[in-house]
Every structure is written in structure tokens, then in C-alpha cells.
Amino acid sequence: MPFTVWNGPAPTTAALASVTTGTAIKTMLQLATPSTTQIRIIEWGFSLDDPPGADGVIELLQTDVAATVTQHVAATGVVNLDPNGPTTLLTMGTSATGYTATAEGAIAATRPFDAVSLSSVSQESGLTYTKTFMPNAMPIVAVSRFLRVRATTPTTAADMRCFVTFEQVG
């Protein structure tokens, strides 16, 4: 059963808001797997409202340490694409599933799944990116780990929306 989650609360009376990347590495979206369930990444992507001030990078990776984030709400922030499906099993909390990190934590180990270079001079390319993983190449995030979408825009912040579509693997 697939779920989609964005780097902000689910839209209601207003559109999904973009979030500033800041000028240092910043976790824009984090998903925390529980001790009983892995997740398989189906697709991920992002869009920027403007190019960054200097070349940057957006990463999709698994880490062993949580960032401190704004907590998502399982029932509304992590959208089950099946209207009759259950709520996600992801772990919720400010050191779990959420968005817009205020502290990155001391990461000791990562498993990178994708990375995208951003150009500071081109507004034609690099502002929107989506990757759909082939069925035999879908990354699996281990139990008790964190999937992060991280942005590094070193000199000037950019406003970003990002998402991950995943399925839970028992």
C-alpha cells in the first residue's frame, strides 16, 4: 500500500507551502521506520521556487541518527494513496518523522540512494526533479533507521517542496 509524504503539513485551505533550505546542509524531510517495519522507496522528488545562490546538492539517503524536525501527523501528513487503507506505521515525533530540521544530529553511517546537483545559473533545469525507482531497484530503508531528503545550498537559501512515495514492507 503506497503512501506519500511532503516536507510540510498536508494542504487544507491553502496550497502546500515551500520551505527554505537555509545556507547549510538541512534535512527537509525525514521518515523514521519503526523496529518492526521497513519501507521501500517508490519515488521521490523536489521543486525549487528559485535557483540557489551557489551550486548545491539535494540528497536522498538513509541515516542511523535522526535530525530534530517538526513532527508530522500520521493521519494527515502521511497520505495513504488507498482511501480505505490504514494509517502509516512510521514512527512520529520530533526525532522521527517530520520536516524542516533545526538540528542535523551526528550521523555515523549513511546509505545514499540518489543525489542531484543544482546549478546556481540555470533556471531552465534543476528546479524540478522526480525519480521513480524501477521495481528491482527500489531502495529499502531498514528498521529503526531514518530516510532523509537533505538540501545543501551554501550561499543563498531556496524555497523547496519535496516528497517521498513509499510502501511499507513487513
Rank of each mutant, 00 (worst) to 15 (best):
A109L: 10
G53I: 09
A108V: 07
N136P: 00
T155C: 09
D49Y: 04
V116Q: 07
N80K: 09
D159L: 13
T102W: 08
G126P: 03
A109D: 09
M134A: 14
S95V: 04
A67K: 03
G53V: 08
G56T: 03
F163W: 11
P154D: 06
V65C: 04
M138R: 15
A115T: 12
P86F: 02
V78H: 06
T88L: 08
L118F: 08
T130G: 02
F146W: 12
V79L: 12
Y129D: 02
T20F: 06
G170H: 07
P112C: 02
D50N: 13
F133N: 05
L61Y: 12
E167G: 14
L118H: 13
W6T: 01
L61A: 07
P139I: 03
Q168A: 05
R161G: 04
T13R: 14
P34S: 15
T110W: 02
S18I: 03
L147D: 03
L61Q: 14
L31A: 03
F146C: 05
D82S: 13
I42V: 15
T76C: 06
T37W: 04
I58K: 00
Y99F: 14
T132P: 00
A96T: 06
T87W: 00
T21H: 02
I41K: 05
W6M: 07
E124M: 12
W44H: 02
V141N: 04
E167M: 13
G56S: 08
E167P: 02
P11W: 06
A137P: 00
N80F: 07
A115E: 10
L81R: 15
Q71R: 12
S122V: 06
T20V: 05
A14N: 09
S144A: 15
A96F: 06
F46R: 00
V69G: 02
G105Y: 05
P112R: 15
T128N: 13
S122T: 14
A157R: 09
M92V: 06
A66C: 08
A137E: 10
E124Q: 14
G126S: 05
T88C: 06
T12P: 00
V116A: 04
Q62A: 07
T110D: 09
A109R: 11
S35D: 15
D64Y: 10
T23Q: 10
A10W: 12
G85H: 11
H72D: 06
A74E: 08
R111I: 14
F163H: 07
A109P: 04
F3S: 02
T76Y: 07
T165S: 11
L60M: 10
G105S: 09
R148A: 07
V78W: 00
T20I: 03
V19I: 14
N136G: 01
A142H: 11
L61R: 12
I39E: 00
L147S: 03
M1Y: 04
N136Q: 12
T23S: 11
F133T: 07
K131G: 01
K131L: 11
A142W: 10
S122C: 08
M134V: 12
T27V: 13
I25L: 13
